[in-house]
Amino acid sequence: MNVVRVEGLTKHFKKFHLGPLNFKVEKGTAVGLVGSNGSGKSTFFRLLMNLVHADGGTVEIFGKKMPSSEIEIKQSIGFAANMLEPFYQLSIKEISSHFSYWYPSWNQNKYEDLINRYKLDEGEKFGKCSTGMKKKVDFIFSLSHEPELLLLDEPTAGVDLGSQKKMKEDLIEFLEDGEKSLIMSTHLIDDLKQICDNIIILSPNGKVQDFLRKEEVEENWAKFWVSELTEELRCHPHVIKVNDSQHPSYLLTDQKHVVEKELREKGISVISIQRLPLDEIIEFQLDS
């Protein structure tokens, strides 16, 4: 079942075009959103939340159409995107009164546990909190009403290492029963490696560069260190990058088994095969 279904979503600004975006998020999965600054990650979330209105395309969440079932959908979404600033003069406790009022599924115990877990002082005014603390507050409010879907815009940015680890644990726990889903943007490779199942890469011009499934990456992407590189290999559709400026040379492929067979048939000896770390793939995708 798909929790989020986006089809042909586009948004035009004076200087920037986002989309068309097409993708699905399966129930129980975590999707990481990566892209350079200005590639439209925040706009992407705001489009999903109907805070920015698309010029074209459709958004379906929980099988419901976005603008028409807006309130129902939003009640089951935990959204953290640094938007609490207008509450700067309120204490965390006072902000919680807003959340508990508007979200029917608000869980006060969970909220209090999280406040303690992240060692926050409920009486502290939001405006007086540091960047990292604000992030934590945002994170806590996104989780405390037990949403079905979390949309987190760079939740770990600017957060201390200890709390980052706790956030990861909380997200893993959130995903544990396979009923809930997550979309998060991040610049941290560890978030992608340790939390996400799939990765959407946004290109600098606001398009989906790639949709990576982690298991496919593990299975199919590889770096072959080889004794020689033939012209044929260079042009092979599944060889996406070669480096022969050094010896031994290597090639990157997104179809390990195809290329392995090819190499064997050509009699080219393989010195070593490595799985490609995620960061290298993302780096490559963002460059191309």
């Binding site: 893993i172 544990e176 982690k214 298991e215």
Partner: peptide, 16 residues
């Protein structure tokens, strides 16, 4: 450990 937790520890996919 649960599948999710072990996957996270090993940085590999849940399916694996």
């Amino acid at each position: 450990p649960s599948i999710r937790v072990l996957s996270s520890d090993l940085s590999c996919s849940v399916i694996t």
